[in-house]
């Protein structure tokens, strides 16, 4: 007589003579469904929540790529920025004006011309 046979006999005996379960109350199913309804547990849409982060990432990527493709070609920033343009023009203008006395004396008596102008 092997141990496996012993076990099989025991299991067979237990299954054959297991205590019979009392009959279920006829209204138990409805009671449980009512209790479930009364528990008011909101089951979240778990699958949809999982989709949200990838969807947000994909949306951001599409928006960035679309912006890169559809936006007009960018001109150099210095030409667009009004302050830079203004500074550039001002520098050039000052440079041009600043060199005038050295480069363009009106004649052999340039200093006289300056004195006359100041007297007026």
């Amino acid at each position: 007589m092997t141990k496996q046979n012993d076990d099989d006999r025991l299991i067979e005996f237990l299954r054959q003579h297991r205590p019979s379960v009392p009959p279920v109350a006829p209204d138990l199913e409805d009671q449980i469904l009512q209790a479930v309804a009364a528990s008011d547990v909101k089951h979240p849409r778990r699958r949809l929540l999982w989709v949200l982060p990838p969807a947000i990432a994909a949306g951001a990527l599409i928006a960035w790529v679309g912006y890169q493709i559809l936006s007009p070609p960018q001109v150099p920033k210095i030409a667009v920025d009004p302050a830079s343009v203004e500074a550039f023009l001002e520098d050039n203008w000052n440079a041009a004006i600043g060199e005038t006395p050295e480069v363009t004396p009106s004649g052999p008596n340039g200093s006289d011309w300056l004195l006359e102008a100041s007297n007026e």
């Binding site: 205590p19 379960v21 009392p22 279920v24 138990l28 449980i32 209790a35 479930v36 528990s39 778990r46």
Partner: peptide, 26 residues
């Protein structure tokens, strides 16, 4: 449940199991 517990409150225990199941499903 019947084999593990007594039979006096079997229906209550069954109800408790399925309520926990409903609440725990998410």
């Amino acid at each position: 449940l019947y084999q593990l517990c007594d039979s006096s409150s079997l229906d209550d225990l069954v109800q408790e199991v399925f309520l926990r199941v409903w609440k725990g499903l998410p």
